[in-house]
Amino acid sequence: MIEVKNIEKSFGGIKILKGVSTVFETGKTNLIIGQSGSGKTVMLKSLLGIHTPESGTISFDGRIYSELAPDEKRDLRTEIGMVFQGSALFDSMTVAENVGFPLKMFTKDNNSKIQERVDFVLKRVNLTDAHKKLPSEISGGMQKRVAIARAIVNNPKYLFCDEPNSGLDPNTAILIDNLIKEITEEYNITTVINTHDMNSVMEIGEKILFLKDGLKAWEGTKEEIFRTDNEAVVAFVYSSNLFKKVREAYLKE
């Protein structure tokens, strides 16, 4: 469980996060949604420790990040898996080397054990024939799957995904969403996904945090988002006719 209490973050005197508090639950896909510029990415990067909030606390199962010693912070980071928006695979490494990288860095496993684990996670993300390819030689969807495999290879407790299905075709996007949800449940991970894709919300959103202008404007479950009369949420989520109709159909049921 990740508990966020009243975090604030500014850049160049402009407050981006204005005191956000929430709880991201274990074993669930927690989604952060909101318009561009609402503070989603800053929120995610603050959770990851890439940005340091000016006030407030972030605790990982009771461990308050800002109070940890540098070594403890690095140890905590080994419990984190991250899927970046652009995949962030290392260009100079093959798919197998990318996936095995966290194991090579942080475990004492020998090469055959690492290879075994790499094979297992690549199979888990349905990539069995790309081991020796470079990231530039595979498609965007495959790169995302490699990034997911790398993020889960050392059994993380926390998985963060920044717009995991951006730039993907609808079929691949749904595959990636479902893969993240399955992995979250299978390994009982606290997963936080930053997205503005409403398909993801409908498909895998178990807990949804809606940010607007750096503030928590709403939070709830996928079911609750259909029934909410929060104007900001309704304006954002049901901006397309398709989702309006989905909502109407859901409410009729």
């Binding site: 990851l48 420790g49 890439i50 690095r74 140890d75 905590l76 980071r77 080994t78 984190i80 991250m82 970046f84 928006q85 652009g86 962030a88 695979l89 290392f90 260009d91 990288f101 966290p102 860095m105 942080f106 963060f160």
Partner: peptide, 18 residues
């Protein structure tokens, strides 16, 4: 610089690598 732009350095840091 390209590693910075493509978030590869962030990926290293998030993993706990100096």
């Amino acid at each position: 610089g390209t590693m910075r732009v493509t978030e590869q350095i962030d990926a290293l840091e998030v993993m706990g690598v100096n």
